[in-house]
């Protein structure tokens, strides 16, 4: 692993992985407790429409995709804000429509040969300095927003109706959360690809949820888990010549099931020992 650090692309990959892990740990925690995992998957896939538009019209994909993903997120938000529990069909439709739009536009682009696989499965090893600065800037903004409005985010996530009654602008915060989610999704696409974004957003917070009882603790733990998964994934990717995005997700997935199984065994042994106590 250490000799890998001689390569600049590897150092960049590690920094990018760390930045994205923190973003996903913080935003992913809010996504998981607000049950927005499916919506986040929808944003990630629909974002491909933005990539298609950018390529077709010759814009820079980064900012354009971020704008497009945010717009899609706001449309999904407008649909879900009325009835959060019956919005899955609309999200599913937008998910596929955005993807289809991207596929058509990319195929219509003359002489086009941008690495499609890079968007689908990530290309952390091609991260450049400007990408890293973007990730750092987004990290700072997201951490500031979440720190500043931490108690409001707890309130709207736990009991939206009560938050409304005491005067919190619930819908505004919901849309701020959607904006943060779509920006997090776009930078995470660079690391693990749009198909696997949903895993990095949901797996670390889901593991953390079992070991902590505060939202802040969950964010911190999820970020650390995410960093651990990306470092391990990059190590496997480098040593065994595996696709980096998929390797990161496989490590995260293995940890997820290991953690759930350990907890299940732990609970069983606790309940059987307490049976003997009484």
């Amino acid at each position: 692993m250490w000799q890998a650090l001689h390569f600049e692309f590897m150092r960049n990959a590690l920094i990018a992985g760390t930045m994205v892990s923190i973003i996903c740990g913080v935003v992913g925690t809010l996504v998981v407790v607000n049950r927005l995992v499916f919506l986040s998957g929808g944003i990630a896939h629909a974002a491909y429409g933005g990539i298609g538009l950018a390529v077709y019209f010759g814009f820079s994909p980064g900012f354009f995709t971020a704008g497009f993903a945010s717009a899609v997120a706001f449309v999904m938000g407008a649909i879900t804000v009325k009835d959060k529990h019956r919005a899955d069909a609309a999200i599913g439709a937008l998910w596929a429509i955005g993807m289809a739009l991207g596929i058509i536009l990319v195929s219509l682009t003359p002489g086009y040969n941008v690495d499609l696989m890079g968007y689908l499965f990530g290309s952390i090893l091609t991260v450049v300095k400007s990408d890293i600065w973007m990730m750092i800037a987004l990290n700072v903004v997201i951490l500031l927003v979440v720190l500043l409005f931490y108690k409001e985010f707890i309130a709207i996530s736990y009991d939206e109706e009560f938050a409304f009654v005491v005067g919190i602008p619930v819908t505004l915060f919901y849309f701020i959360l959607l904006l943060m989610t779509s920006l997090a999704v776009v930078v995470t696409i660079k690391v693990v690809g749009l198909i696997l974004v949903i895993a990095l957003l949901s797996i670390p917070p889901s593991i953390a949820e079992d070991y902590t009882h505060s939202l802040g603790g969950m964010m911190l733990m999820a970020s650390l888990f995410g960093i651990f998964f990306t470092v391990c994934g990059l190590y496997l990717s480098f040593n065994y010549n595996l696709p980096s995005g998929a390797a990161i997700i496989m490590v995260a997935g293995a940890a997820f099931f290991l953690s759930k199984i350990l907890r299940w065994i732990g609970r069983r042994s606790v309940s059987s020992s307490s049976m003997y106590d009484t």
Partner: peptide, 20 residues
């Protein structure tokens, strides 16, 4: 939801004028 009794009770102290 990962929240304690104290955190739930503190929600009663929230208001629009003291956001953030």
């Amino acid at each position: 939801f990962p929240i304690s009794a104290l955190e739930v009770t503190l929600m009663g102290r929230l208001s629009r004028s003291r956001l953030g």
